[in-house]
């Protein structure tokens, strides 16, 4: 069965104010081979010692004080934004719409079929693994970008926009030789072979997008 043939990496954090449901879901996921941590409220969840470990959150949408959506908001802004699966006792159309609109990615009723639930957990764990990988790469890239000087970053921004060396020299009011020198330094520091690779790396790191997006 599922439990035996796949020992998953990552912890499932369950947050629900209904003690009985919390216990039942913990039991099921534990039995299926997941590492499970159960919390009766969002506050308890955030108060846990948080090692950088892959995982996902299964949270009740309706909870007193901090509800599921608020938990997601807070989590997203943290250093470790785990994916969240929402559970609700409701399952009616208005509350589903409102939850989706608020950014709930996965949304299940408490009585959803077991497979749907497990699929959602799997998806979330996969997403977390992927995001984690991305974050590692980004960190690595941003370390490399950090080696660039201010002028080099300036030149790079023009390069990835497809500007020719002459145009860059004119824009920055520097001579062509200097532009070529900067470009050589950039390819060396970032360890890239071509402009195409360079552009892909910049895209991946979101280096120039992050400030603009904020």
């Amino acid at each position: 069965m599922t439990a035996t043939n796949s020992k998953r990496s990552g912890t499932v954090y369950i947050v629900d104010d209904d003690a009985s449901f919390l216990r039942s879901l913990s039991r099921l996921l534990t039995a299926l081979g997941y590492a499970v941590e159960a919390y009766a409220s969002a506050q308890d969840f955030f108060a846990r010692p948080a090692p950088d470990r892959p995982g996902c959150v299964v949270a009740d949408l309706q909870m007193p004080d901090i509800n599921g959506l608020q938990l997601q908001d807070q989590l997203r802004r943290s250093s470790e934004p785990l994916p969240v699966i929402f559970l609700t006792g409701q399952g009616d159309i208005p509350s589903t719409v409102s939850a989706m609109r608020s950014g709930a990615e996965d949304f299940l009723t408490k009585r959803a079929p077991q497979q749907e639930l497990l699929d959602a957990v799997e998806r979330a764990l996969a997403r977390d693994a992927h995001q984690r990988q991305q974050r590692t790469r980004q960190r690595e890239l941003s370390l490399r970008f950090d080696e660039l000087s201010g002028r080099e970053k300036e030149v790079l921004s023009h390069v990835v926009r497809g500007r020719m060396n002459k145009q860059i020299a004119a824009d920055l009011n520097i001579n062509l030789r200097t532009v070529k020198l900067h470009r050589t330094n950039i390819t060396r520091k970032l360890n890239v072979q071509s402009v195409a690779e360079l552009t892909r790396m910049v895209d991946e790191s979101g280096f120039f997008q992050a400030p603009e997006n904020d």
């Binding site: 069965m1 439990a3 209904d18 009985s20 449901f21 216990r23 039942s24 879901l25 039991r27 099921l28 534990t30 039995a31 299926l32 309706q62 559970l87 609700t88 006792g89 409701q90 399952g91 009616d92 208005p94 509350s95 009723t109 408490k110 009585r111 077991q114």
Partner: peptide, 27 residues
């Protein structure tokens, strides 16, 4: 009514998950 659904789904959901867990244990 929506409150009623919630109130009922809470224990019913717990029952379902518990039963599923028991099934796994017994296997």
């Amino acid at each position: 009514a929506s409150a009623l659904t919630h109130e009922l789904n809470q224990p019913l959901g717990a029952i379902l998950r518990n039963a599923e867990a028991a099934e796994v244990y017994l296997q």
